[in-house]
Amino acid sequence: MTPFNRNFGQGRNTKAVRLDMNWKELTKAGNIYEPGNAATYETGDWRTIRPVWNKDRCIHCLICWRYCPDASIISTDGKFDSFDYKHCKGCGICASVCPVHAIDMFSEDEIDRREEARKNEE
């Protein structure tokens, strides 16, 4: 498409805006009519270290949820559910604030290497 597409990055076309729209089609004044549509923009690949949850240790206090700057800890019914790896930037704050060390940070490269090794073995 156009060469000027860097802002879309890992994002997708939003409902109202497509990358290739001309000036007549784009929303007026750059208004955005889809609240919270940044969720369709994935920042997960910024991550170099990945938080991994240790289910057995977790006491579901949700301190990690409180302190994640990227709203990347998903809770269900007031309990830790999962990480939103599409948006988690790997800052490591959740692991640092967890009172029972139920989150460990692993290098993404290391995880990739292990994945690859495992696939090769199969």
Binding site: G11, A39, Y41, T43, R47, Y67, A71, K86, I93
Partner: peptide, 14 residues
């Protein structure tokens, strides 16, 4: 929501 582009660990997000 997530998907904003503050640096990883930025205090503003919290």
């Amino acid at each position: 929501v997530g998907g904003h582009r503050l640096c990883a660990g930025c205090g503003h997000g919290i």
